[in-house]
Design a protein around this nucleic acid. Structure first.
Length: 260
DNA sequence: ATGGTCGCGCAGCGA
């Protein structure tokens, strides 16, 4: 499962209730907005999870949590090179899977410095795969990509003309991940449009079904062959002042890992 | 009605 929680501090009761109900084996979180020493390891341990957190405090922050073991943790990019300026990726081995939780830079506006950072960040993610992973192995890269892979992943493509998340430049970087060997696991199960993972808080967008599918679970072909189902839990996007939701919903992919 | 919503943290930025 992957979920951009938009502050784990603000979302902890909701995340705990969700984990207790669905009991996923591997959990990737983004936008924890916590420093490492503020991560509630004991609360996750109480639910059976061992966690790797990579955070900085006010912004960003990612985690990989597992109840099937967690080894070989890497906080940040795994490949050679200078450290990332933000806390946006963490790698760990969970059972048979090599897993990355990623929070791809938003980009802000096309042409903005942050947009170039986004494109370079995606190139660096490809370098992690090239240097540290095998496309014949069982690798999962999931999280908030801040890219809608296709026009069917956006409620109104014309509303995003000239905006980030849909440009050819961003989609080409995503294509480079597919060329390496990653498959969009959700799309192995569902072809239709209108299936989103993020809705703006403003304007009642969630209730008007104005969203985007920008949270992705990518896996190598051996993983794709094991997929038995995939869903977005829209219910987790519901709620009001007494139980405020993240602006993202969790994406769950079921794998049959018998024999691995 | 010239906004609209969050989180962080206490102004205004980032999403």
């Amino acid at each position: 499962m992957t979920w951009n929680v938009n502050s784990l501090k603000a979302r902890l009761p909701r995340v705990e209730a969700w984990l207790a109900e669905f009991e996923p084996d591997v959990v990737c979180l983004q936008e924890t907005k916590l420093a490492d020493d503020a991560f509630p390891h004991e609360r996750f341990a109480a639910l059976g999870y061992e966690c790797l957190h990579h955070g900085e405090g006010r912004w960003n922050g990612v985690a990989v949590c597992s109840r099937v073991g967690l080894t070989d943790p890497v906080a940040g990019f795994a490949s050679a090179g200078p450290p990332d300026r933000d806390a946006r990726i963490a790698w760990a081995t969970c059972g048979p899977l090599r897993v990355a939780s990623v929070y791809v830079p938003n980009g802000r506006e096309v042409g903005h410095d942050h947009f170039h950072y986004k494109l370079e960040w995606l190139e660096r993610l490809r370098a992690d795969l090239d240097e540290c992973c095998d496309p014949a192995g069982k690798v999962v890269v999931c999280g908030d990509f801040n890219i809608a892979p296709d026009d069917r992943d956006v409620y109104d493509p014309s509303a995003f003309d000239g905006a980030t998340h849909v440009t050819p430049a961003e989609r080409e970087k995503l294509a480079a991940l597919h060329e390496w060997g990653l498959v969009d696991l959700f799309r192995t199960q569902h072809d239709e449009d209108g299936l989103y993972t993020w809705w703006d808080y403003r304007g009642g967008d969630f209730h008007k079904r104005r969203g985007m599918r920008i949270d992705l679970v990518l896996g190598t072909r051996p993983v794709a062959a094991a997929v038995t189902g995939a869903v977005v839990d829209r219910n987790a996007r519901k709620g009001g002042r007494d139980d405020p939701p993240s602006d993202h919903a969790p994406v769950i992919v079921d794998l049959d890992c018998a024999g691995s």
